[in-house]
């Protein structure tokens, strides 16, 4: 198995703690991300996938649990210097390319902000060269450096967002729904770009999305979240071929495919948490059904799921 880059252990992120409106956005989830892979995270809105991403990069302080990056706890107490080092290694690409770029800053300054903070350029000339190179990397040209965000289309802005993330030469990028706001033809451009960059630079991605067919395409492994819990985690192919958890099955059965024949015969499966009928105090946790394929289930369900899984395989 490849080297672990990130270990998430029993991560919890609650909001409004102690108040009647307490929200358990992320409720005790654990997973690892290996060096050089893409882990997809899918689920409905409100299931906590974005919160997970944001907690990993320390935009929120975790309520409980640990995030170990190269063995070091991200949420542990850190000096300013350590924090800076960590921030350089982990970067984020945001969902909305309209809201995530400061409209009053030039593209060159947006991209170079990280370069300035981390002192990666020794002279203004080097800084500009870096910006130009980054623009070319993401398929824009250097004339764009002096423009402002409003002069760009959605797809181009998302490329600028990617260039900004790449500017500090990170190892790990969290992409929070990077293509949801884009047109189909532009989505393909951005996804191809992300894949190419991964190959060239050995980047590791956490790819958060609700578009399941794109996630399948880009990810090596996929985690499915439901109401703050991770319910299934498996390799992309295995998850799509042999989904085990009823929620995953329901989610997969709902993907619309560009194939009228298939659409006419599709059966949608509804999911209701009541199907589990867990008793109080029953031990429900992630269990390994086959190597690398984890499902959140009780002891009883485990046997049943395992039998079904082996039967379908």
């Amino acid at each position: 198995m490849a080297e672990k880059l990130l270990e998430v252990k029993n991560l919890k992120q609650y909001f409004n703690i102690g108040k009647p409106k307490e929200v358990r956005a992320v409720d005790d989830i654990s997973f690892d991300i290996y060096k050089g892979e893409t882990l997809g995270l899918v689920g409905e809105s409100g299931c906590g996938k974005s919160t997970t991403g944001r907690t990993l990069i320390r935009l929120y302080n975790a309520t409980g649990g640990e995030v170990l990056y190269n063995g070091v706890n991200v949420h542990g107490k850190k000096s300013g210097k350590e924090l800076k080092e960590f921030n350089q290694k982990m970067q984020m690409i945001f969902q909305d390319p309209y809201a995530s770029l400061n409209p009053r800053m030039k593209i060159s300054d947006i991209i170079a902000e990280g370069i300035d903070i981390h002192g990666l350029a020794k002279s203004p000339k080097e800084r500009l060269e870096k910006v130009h190179k980054l623009l070319e990397t993401v398929g824009l040209n250097k004339e764009h450096a002096n423009r402002y965000p409003h002069e760009f289309s959605g797809g181009q802005r998302q490329r600028i967002g990617i260039a900004r993330a790449l500017a500090v030469e990170p190892e790990f990028i969290i992409a929070d729904e990077p293509i949801s706001a884009l047109d189909v033809s532009i989505q393909a451009q951005v996804v191809n770009l992300l894949k190419k960059l991964q190959k060239e630079r050995g980047l590791t991605y956490l790819f958060i999305a609700h578009d399941l067919s794109m996630v399948k395409y880009i990810s090596d492994r996929i985690g499915v979240m439901y109401f703050g819990k991770l319910v299934e985690l498996a390799s992309a192919d295995d998850l799509y071929r042999n989904p085990v958890h009823p929620y995953t099955q329901s989610l997969l059965s709902a993907i619309p495919l560009p194939d009228p024949e298939y659409e006419r015969t599709r059966k949608r499966q509804a999911y209701h948490p009541d199907v589990h009928q867990y008793e109080d105090g029953e031990d429900v946790r992630m269990r390994e059904i086959s190597p690398g394929h984890f499902v959140n289930c009780s002891e009883k369900e485990f046997e049943q799921y395992k039998a079904n899984y082996n039967h379908n395989k």
Binding site: S185, Q187, A188, Q189, V191, Y217, L257
Partner: peptide, 18 residues
């Protein structure tokens, strides 16, 4: 438009881009 969408059984080839 049709070929820029990944199909669920598509493998590692690059997505078609307009």
């Amino acid at each position: 438009l049709i070929s820029s969408m990944p199909s669920l059984d598509s493998q590692d080839e690059e997505l078609f881009v307009i």
